[in-house]
Design a protein around this nucleic acid. Structure first.
Length: 118
DNA sequence: GTTGTGACATCGC
DNA sequence: CGCGATGCCACAA
């Protein structure tokens, strides 16, 4: 018997991707929210996961397939995180196509576009 | 088998 | 609003 904090990290990523696919067009979710949703679905996580789960969501996003609308995932401030590769610029363009408006500083209104998880 | 470093964030002040 | 500090997991050597 070995310790199994998580069945498989790969499965963890797929779990995140599946949730991201549930995000409707014109809506966005935060890393922390996704981490919380995964835990709410019954994922065995450590108590401290709440503090760093957000980063692992970002890890999943970095390795997410093209089938996943990673574009709708933003940080807690409603801002797009700068990522290696410069894809963040594409992300903003895709979100604008969905009707989301950005401020001059590249931020969107989370209270307006935040996905409640339904 | 063990050690050390990294990571797309979050929270608080 | 802005900046600083936090501290988990996993991977690599």
């Amino acid at each position: 018997m070995k310790s199994d904090p998580v069945p498989d990290k790969k499965e963890f990523f797929e779990r995140i991707w599946q949730i991201v696919r549930r995000i409707p067009s014109g809506k966005v979710a935060t890393y922390g929210q996704l981490a919380d949703l995964v835990a709410a679905q019954g994922w065995p996580v450590s108590p401290a996961y709440h503090a760093w789960g957000s980063r692992w969501v970002g890890q999943a996003m970095a390795n997410c397939p093209e089938d996943v609308p990673w574009q709708r995932v933003v940080n807690a401030r409603g801002e797009i995180s700068e990522r290696p590769g410069g894809s963040h610029r594409l992300q903003r363009a895709l979100l604008e196509e969905e009707g989301i408006v950005f401020d001059d500083r590249g931020r969107l209104d989370l209270q307006r576009y935040r996905w409640t998880g339904t």
